[in-house]
Design a protein around this nucleic acid. Sequence first.
DNA 1: ATCAACTTTCAATATATTTTGAAAGTTCAG
DNA 2: CTGAACTTTCAAAATATATTGAAAGTTGAT
Lengths: 168, 168
Amino acid sequence: MKLADAKQQFISSWGAFGTHWGINRTMAQIHALLLVSVSPITQDDIMEQLSISRGNVNMNIRDLIGWGLVERIIITGERKEFFTAEKDIWKVATQIIKERKKRELDPMIRLLAQLENIDDDKKDKDVKQFIEVIRGIKKLGGQADKVLGAMVNAEENWFTGSMLKMFK
Amino acid sequence: MKLADAKQQFISSWGAFGTHWGINRTMAQIHALLLVSVSPITQDDIMEQLSISRGNVNMNIRDLIGWGLVERIIITGERKEFFTAEKDIWKVATQIIKERKKRELDPMIRLLAQLENIDDDKKDKDVKQFIEVIRGIKKLGGQADKVLGAMVNAEENWFTGSMLKMFK
DNA sequence: ATCAACTTTCAATATATTTTGAAAGTTCAG
DNA sequence: CTGAACTTTCAAAATATATTGAAAGTTGAT
């Protein structure tokens, strides 16, 4: 397979993969393009490579920067801005996890904590079951939170280290 | 907070949460409703509680059964079908992980394996970087696959056991 | 075998999300 | 200060996704 074809397929598949996880297809595609670009590229490069509009590129780049996955690069003597993505996949993964944890997991756990406080009769079957389900999800969320938090803050890179040996 | 209000908020939030993870809002809501229902309920019950059409309920219930999260219950003497959801959150989580792994993670890893085979000059900077990124993602995916596979097949329930103690 | 009760399907419709592109905003060299 | 180069914004348009509801299909009691 030729490099150009492989790149294209990677970008396209990464975009499709993203949509299955609640991530805008174009945002994932731009990220993929930046991942496989050796040097920083401009908005015009992205527009051309992915055949999308300037506005679309601009908004999605902004989001990617907000996710901490892409960096704006100013090259002296150049008028245009350049963009580049973190290439270390371990760092990319921990960054994505950190953000999703903050944006989605933590707020959900906070909400569940509130829903536990039911005024009605605690002996009622319905109330019991409801509280049990909420507690269960909260507990699971809390554990995921802890494991992922440890992963994100780990000194050792679990990727290269032996942390995950036990699951072989 | 009253039970009825808490239930409503749970259903609504769970639906919103689902959409952030690529899951149909209504499917997540039906699942939430079944989670907090003590006894099996019918399509009509779901239609009424969530104010949605029969077709919508039917299709999403079918998907939920496909995900292994909901069961069809035949009650002797009743003409209508009833539905119920697994309430053990650990089982729910492993089932969801098992399915997403099968549907999304495994195919992606297979694809990446193909993209590694580049015909062009392996010494070329672009080729090198591309292969490195693909390898990195494949490795990460493989590790996630292993850890999640272990979690799904674990004899011990990590939820109640001490498996996750080390992350406290 | 009939028919009422119930379930399933899917084309049409509605809704939500994404994308565009032109106008407004910003920056900076001369 | 001016204006060309570039970036950002956002209302309108396009597209993708979800929902409806009525017709077709199935089931089982009589």
